[in-house]
Design a protein around this nucleic acid. Structure first.
Lengths: 147, 147
DNA sequence: TGACAAACGATAACTACTATCGTCTAATAG
DNA sequence: CTATTAGACGATAGTAGTTATCGTTTGTCA
């Protein structure tokens, strides 16, 4: 899809969600789409600042949070913030609650193993893989507003 | 394996690695093993403090870093620290370099999909899954000291 | 076009983590 | 079983990443 069509869709979704379509939000969203990478908020801020020199870092953070809540954007990982340690030496994967961020072990033999069909020709040397089942744990219930 | 046998093994590995076996390290490691969860360094500190009230938070952080470097411990995720954003709406997974932490997309159709053999009876509602291939990217080379 | 809710920028505050430094202790060599 | 010493410790200051507060500005809708 063309970038401008994506921006159009973004504006429509904002209207539907009752979110004001501001110049800042549009530029921030455009930069998030335009970069093929997985930027940090700081990196987004640097890109946006080139177009809106007066933009505030707080605004970038607030906009990102708004987009995440609205489902316009995803996080690569649910674990940023604080480090989580794993001393379990037996092969296992994880279930992660997206609300309370609790982590539950899933023994490896309960999982149909994933693998790359075509080993990548990028020179990337895969050493191990980590499978995470994202969802909502029993304690947090099963609300409908998915991210 | 019994807890005390694991501690014994821990002390042997410390000696082999040239790491001093201190009371603090032993208690920290024991608490990491004893908790079935995936604690934050802060949570480990709280547990250790009950046994060594004078322990410093810095020591807990330093010990954890030492254990990670030595391969005595793993991180649940390579992404703690700063948030990483994902505006790519097409189904995909990730390859993550454990050195430079760069993230590369892997289209979902290149991956043999994983799934839970026995849907968990824990009340955990799985919404989506995230597969990460951990390794070393071409730019970082392929050193031998794996984590 | 005017009213108002909400978004903005500036700034302070907070959490998670790392570095520094003087003291203490585990490892070792005698 | 001591003496020596590298390195591990606790206290504390500093940094990075993020969130909260507040007065001003702006997008939305009547």
């Amino acid at each position: 899809m063309q970038l401008e069509a994506i921006i159009q869709q973004f504006e429509d979704r904002c209207h539907k969600l009752g979110l004001a379509v501001t110049h800042q939000r549009t530029v921030i969203y455009r930069e998030l789409i335009a970069t093929g990478e997985h930027p940090t908020p700081e990196a987004v801020y640097e890109r946006v600042k080139k177009q809106i020199p007066a933009v505030s870092l707080g605004t970038v953070y607030k906009s990102i949070k708004t987009f995440l809540d609205a489902g316009l954007l995803r996080e690569v990982s649910l674990h940023h913030g604080s480090q989580r340690l794993d001393a379990n030496t037996s092969p296992h994967h994880h279930m992660v609650c997206r609300q309370c961020r609790r982590i539950f072990d899933v023994p490896a033999d309960q999982v149909e193993p994933a693998k790359l069909k075509n080993p990548p020709e990028t020179g990337f040397e895969v050493e191990r893989l980590s499978i995470e089942f994202w969802g909502v744990c029993a304690a947090c219930g099963h609300p409908r507003n998915h991210r």
